[in-house]
């Protein structure tokens, strides 16, 4: 949008942007190079490219020895089921808030929306004893189920806020036409509302995926080593104070790639979803 021909100012603007983006790219370059090169080489500075060798050993080390492979699987299990569950119960609830009248509607909506502001710490500490009471503390799949339910409860506020705003945008004429044809609420929900609100659902799915995948605090608090997600594995490697920068770098890249890939593939939906979430 160069409105005037003052080339000097343009130079300054591009110069400043170049410096800033360099600052932003330095950590990325650092982690990529540290993950792809042997530790011995990066000790002299990863930017030293003379005689550089590249290897996938660090990824193998992270996946096998550091046990981040199984944690990656855990992350996919937790995130996949959490997103599916939050969308299912969230979409049903959104329909009720947008199209139906019922007692307690205002109060329930208020409580759900409050969770967007109240910090997760308000539920965190009693959850562990609560998991033991409910039998989610140990077992093969029970901890996963518990975690999925906690993420679902925590994501509901956002789910109702975002998907609700998309469902509210569906013209009432369409749903009324359905009612005249004798369709029940569930038919209207499934055949009319869901297909039309699909972009909103996809937006929410991406944001929830990124949110759940990136969670550290809940995983660290509630899950044992066999069920812990990737973020917990990386945080534990990091705090171990051992000089394992190569393996940690590879692990960090493993953790970064899935949400990044999703973002790049569905960028349009992600940004639109963020805007419906308060930035209008």
């Amino acid at each position: 949008m160069s409105r005037r021909g003052d080339i000097g100012a343009m130079w300054w603007i591009y110069g400043l942007l170049a410096v800033l983006s360099l600052l932003w790219l330095v950590p990325v370059a650092t982690v990529v190079m540290s993950a792809l090169r042997p530790l011995g080489e990066i000790r002299d500075g990863w930017w030293n490219l003379a005689g550089a060798t590249f290897t996938i050993d660090n990824f193998l080390g992270a996946w096998n020895e550091a046990d981040l492979g199984s944690k990656t699987v855990n992350s996919f299990i937790i995130t996949g089921f959490s997103v599916a569950s939050t969308i299912s119960i969230g979409a049903l609830a959104s329909y009720a808030f947008v199209r139906l009248r019922f007692r307690g509607r205002g109060l329930i909506y208020f409580l759900l929306i409050s969770t967007m502001i109240v910090p997760v710490q308000i539920i965190l500490i009693p959850l562990l004893p609560w998991f033991r009471t409910l039998g989610f503390a140990e077992g093969s799949w029970q901890p996963f189920l518990g975690m999925v339910l906690v993420h679902s409860a925590f994501g509901l506020g956002w789910a109702v806020f975002m998907m609700g705003s998309f469902m509210a945008a569906v013209p009432t004429e369409l749903t009324e036409a359905g009612q005249i044809d004798g369709a029940g609420h569930f038919d209207i929900f499934r055949r009319i509302i869901l297909p039309l609100a699909l972009p909103g659902i996809v937006s929410f799915a991406i944001i929830d995926f990124v949110f759940v995948w990136n969670d550290l605090l809940l995983g660290l608090t509630l899950l044992d080593a066999d069920h812990a997600p990737l973020t917990v594995g990386i945080a534990n490697l990091q705090s171990a104070h051992l000089a394992q920068q190569d393996v940690i770098s590879a692990g960090a890249l493993l953790a970064i790639l899935p949400p990044l890939a999703l973002f790049v593939a569905l960028n349009r939906y992600y940004v639109r979803g963020l805007f419906s979430g308060g930035v209008k």
Binding site: A93, I108, V118, I122, I123, W130, L149, A153, L156, H185
Partner: peptide, 17 residues
């Protein structure tokens, strides 16, 4: 429509809070 959400929310958010 709201029951599943309410149940999960009550058990894993409201009660812990």
């Amino acid at each position: 429509f709201i029951l599943p959400a309410l149940l999960v929310f009550a058990l894993f958010y409201l009660w812990p809070a």
